[in-house]
Design a binder for these strands. Structure first.
Lengths: 171, 171
DNA sequence: AATGAAAGGTCGGCAAC
DNA sequence: GTTGCCGACCTTTCATT
């Protein structure tokens, strides 16, 4: 069970703040038809429950000359795991790190100013283990806002061969 | 050549606003030792040049029950490209789309409430072409702030066999 | 849990230097 | 880029529903 379940009003607040984090409680209340004190109380509740975790300005990397985005999938050598043997400050180009299930142990999202720079980065990271790189050509969208989970859909629209008609399962 | 090159003061502003987008111009000026009108002018300049592109609240997906993050790498069938034949609203679980160079044409970052939900999503997206999925187990960090590009590093520390000593190239 | 009013502080914009 | 000022807006508190 989750600590707190946002209601529709909370989701309206989350929506507005994800669109523009700089609006005042007054303006926010105006938009969602709630008085400023109520808005403030809800925002603090959402913050308190760890749902609202912060407010950030977005800086367009391409506008400051960091045009190249790529992913690096890494399979760290035993004892040379990037996450355990390297300081993140060593790799400012790495903007995102995921630990993965599957063939690779780690996926890095990197942002650099040029392919030449990327080549140097790959050499540096390659000391930790074999890797695969994927260049991003364009990003139709990113950072889509968090919304309430849609109602669960059935896995398939019709019955499949592995679905017993009497719906007996091992649940 | 880029339209506008942020100076150190601009970067200080970008830093503070990426840390907390909700501070006032007053507070911002206090932190970077600049008067509020100057701060306001710089912020508007950065916005005007497309460097500051927006301000967003961060909502923790896990805190609202969307615990599962995964990537789907897709190689769209000819004429059934996901980006051209599907409405993004059809796939609210897809929070990020990248067009790729390499083996796959598209990488999707998806966020769902459960593995069961993920299975259904994969079935729906699978109609567009063959795909590979990668589960994210954890994310040590994401959304690292944009910073000034570090000085370019040499590709290798020493000369390599393909580097001619007289530095003649085809540039 | 939300509202309304009132108090006090803060903010943002403008003009002048 | 800075200072000073003014009007407007904002946040908070508290009593009330």
């Amino acid at each position: 069970m989750r600590a707190y379940e946002p209601d529709d009003t909370d989701w309206a607040i989350l929506h507005e703040l994800q669109l523009d984090a700089r609006i005042s409680f007054n303006e926010l209340g105006r938009r969602i038809h709630l008085s400023p004190p109520s808005v403030a109380e809800r925002v603090r509740r959402l913050e308190g429950h760890g749902i609202l975790t912060g407010y950030a300005a977005h800086v367009d990397p391409a506008a400051v000359g960091q045009d190249v985005t790529a992913y690096i999938n890494l399979r760290c050598d035993p004892g040379r795991c990037l996450l355990k043997t390297a300081d993140p400050e060593e790799f400012p180009e790495v903007v995102e790190i995921h630990k993965l299930a599957g063939r690779h142990c780690t996926m890095l999202r990197v942002r650099v100013a040029s392919i030449a720079h990327f080549e140097g980065l790959v050499e540096r990271i390659g000391t930790h283990g074999p890797l695969e790189t994927t260049m991003v050509m364009s990003t139709p969208f990113t950072r889509r806002e968090v919304r309430p989970a849609p109602p669960r859909r059935p896995v398939t629209t019709g019955d499949a061969w592995w679905q017993a008609k009497d719906a007996s399962g091992d649940a």
